[in-house]
Amino acid sequence: MKNILLENDIVLLRPIEIGDIEGISKAANDERIWEHMSVSLLDLASVESYVKNAIADREKGITYTFVVIEKKTNRIVGCTSFLDISLPHKRVEIGSTWYQPSVWRSAINTNCKFLLLQYGFEELQLNRIQIKTGHENIRSQQAIERIGAVKEGILRNHMIRKEGTIRHTVMYSIVAEEWEKVKAKFTQELLNP
Rank of each mutant, 00 (worst) to 15 (best):
H168L: 02
Q188K: 15
I10T: 14
K71M: 11
H135T: 03
I16F: 05
W104T: 08
G148T: 04
I144S: 02
S173Q: 08
G120Y: 02
K71Q: 10
I33D: 08
D84R: 11
H135N: 04
L190N: 01
D20M: 06
T165N: 06
A184C: 09
K185R: 02
L41E: 00
L44G: 06
T73S: 15
R14H: 02
I76F: 09
K90A: 14
E145L: 06
R58K: 15
E180N: 15
F66Q: 03
L190C: 01
N111F: 07
L87Y: 09
T63W: 00
I4R: 00
T97N: 03
I160H: 00
L44Y: 13
A149W: 05
N74F: 06
L41G: 06
G134Y: 03
N8C: 04
N3S: 10
R156P: 00
V103L: 01
T169G: 02
K185Y: 00
H36C: 04
I131G: 01
T187F: 09
R14P: 08
T165S: 05
G164T: 03
I154G: 11
S106F: 07
S25G: 15
T187V: 13
S96W: 02
Y99I: 07
K60P: 08
N137T: 02
V170P: 02
I144C: 15
L190M: 02
R161Q: 12
A107L: 12
